[in-house]
């Protein structure tokens, strides 16, 4: 076979096309990371169920564990390292403090272009509708 050139060219083209989103993002103006707005209630609480750094980086894993624990193991109370207890509920616990979903959740998700499907079922914000 003497199609080496063609094959290599094909592979290169494939990788350029496949990695296009990364290239695009490199050159696109992204703007500064959005600022997280805390409600007075969230501010007053000072600490979430875990420390801020953990929550920023791992809230999705935490929520994933929570939903499994609540639905599959029927254990609904989360006790953090300080011994404080929380009802593991996205709508009723998380959003009770963070009742500003648009400013707290959506902004950052939009920035990272993430569309969590949590909200397909879990009700946005109990506070607002009350």
């Amino acid at each position: 076979m003497n199609d080496k050139g063609k094959i290599i060219a094909g592979i290169v083209i494939f990788f350029v096309v496949a990695s296009f989103p990364f290239w695009l993002n490199m050159f696109l103006e992204k703007g500064p990371a959005p600022e997280l707005v805390l409600t007075p209630k969230a501010k007053a609480a000072e600490k979430c169920v875990r420390d801020t750094q953990f929550m920023t980086a791992n809230h999705m894993q935490l929520l994933d564990e929570w939903r499994d624990t609540v639905v599959r193991k029927a254990e609904r109370i989360y006790v953090n390292a300080e011994g404080k207890e929380f009802n593991m509920s996205l709508s009723n616990t998380c959003l009770d403090c963070h009742s500003n979903k648009a400013e707290f959740c959506d902004r950052c998700h939009d920035y990272a272009s993430i569309e969590p499907y949590c909200w397909d079922c879990h009700i946005d914000n109990p506070k607002e509708t009350k």
Partner: peptide, 12 residues
Amino acid sequence: GAQPHVRKGADA
């Protein structure tokens, strides 16, 4: 000791 953990509610 103080590892976060989960449990059932007391009234469950």
